[in-house]
């Protein structure tokens, strides 16, 4: 069973990274910003979902409600925080999102405490055994939800006017405004959608790694790696990269002695360096056009 089980475990870990990577890609694609606080916004709303389930609300309803509430949170973040830094050094916006991460982490801790909490799964707690390999319904469910989200995003971005406008705004805000697009509304919509997606990610991950104010920190690193590796504007790329990262690190950690489980984090990072040197825009990303 060994190797195959490691692959399945890797895919499962990869789907965790992919969920957050998708939200990162969405914000970047819609507004050109890499939002370090994306995971933490999801954590906040996952706690809201947890409070709802503790009050007796069914999990699915709680998660959907939290996602719905996330939309205005994302909109407000863009409107009242991020927009004030439009035109600033890109670095400043990165630091603003880091500040938001720290603030939200503190808020979550102040409200719900720092003891990690179990979070009910959206899927039945059952195991399917194929040969010697154990696959849980949750793992399959997570993967299916992810693929559905990717498909949905692809359709929105490539087949709808709304998606086209979003891409136009991220690409060049000024020209979009000149050609009559409601830039501000589009930016807010992009952030709102990403926040809802980030909440979904946190709620999918939470049953596995437990609710904790800092639960997304480690995931964020992998998700960032996946998003950059896949190309920051490609949802498909992010998911493929996340799954590859999950499998590669598990196989390497388990079977290459010098790496071992402690240094397995080096594997995706090394992979990323190699790929980026060949394709700085990521595997699926579009080449950045440099203007003089």
């Amino acid at each position: 069973m060994g190797a195959l089980q490691q692959v399945v475990d890797g895919l499962s870990a990869g789907s965790i990274y992919a969920a957050l990577a998708l939200a990162l890609v969405l914000v970047h694609r819609a507004t050109g910003v890499v939002n370090f606080a994306q995971g933490e916004m999801g954590v906040l709303m996952a706690y809201v979902a947890w409070s709802l389930t503790s009050a007796g609300v069914p999990v699915l309803v709680a998660v959907l409600a939290a996602m719905a509430l996330s939309f205005p949170l994302g909109v407000a973040t863009e409107r009242f925080l991020i927009r004030r830094f439009h035109g600033q050094d890109g670095l400043v916006i990165v630091v603003v999102t880091v500040g938001l991460l720290i603030l939200l982490n503190g808020i979550v801790g102040a409200i719900w405490g720092y003891v990690s909490k179990p979070f009910p799964s959206l899927f039945p707690n059952e195991v399917i055994r194929l040969g010697g390999v154990a696959v849980t319904v949750e793992q399959i469910g997570n993967l299916v939800v992810l693929l559905a989200v990717v498909a949905g995003l692809q359709i929105i971005f490539l087949r709808t006017r709304f998606g086209l406008s979003l891409r136009a705004v991220a690409d060049n805000r000024e020209s979009s405004a000149l050609s009559g697009l409601a830039v501000n509304r589009l930016l807010m919509a992009g952030w709102g959608m990403a926040a809802a997606l980030g909440t979904l990610a946190a709620c999918l991950i939470a049953p596995k790694i437990f609710l904790d104010p800092s639960m997304m920190n480690a995931v964020l690193v992998y998700s960032l790696a996946a998003a950059v590796l896949g190309g920051l504007d490609s949802p498909v790329g992010a998911v493929v990269a996340a799954l590859v990262i999950g499998v590669a690190e598990n196989i390497a950690g388990a079977y290459i002695d010098i790496i071992g489980t402690d240094l397995k984090i080096a594997v995706p990072l090394l992979l990323m360096v190699v790929v980026l040197l060949g394709r700085p825009q990521g595997i699926f990303g579009r080449r950045e056009v440099v203007r003089v």
Partner: peptide, 8 residues
């Protein structure tokens, strides 16, 4: 984030 691989 997960010790699945180790447990396997």
């Amino acid at each position: 984030t997960s010790l699945d691989s180790q447990i396997s």
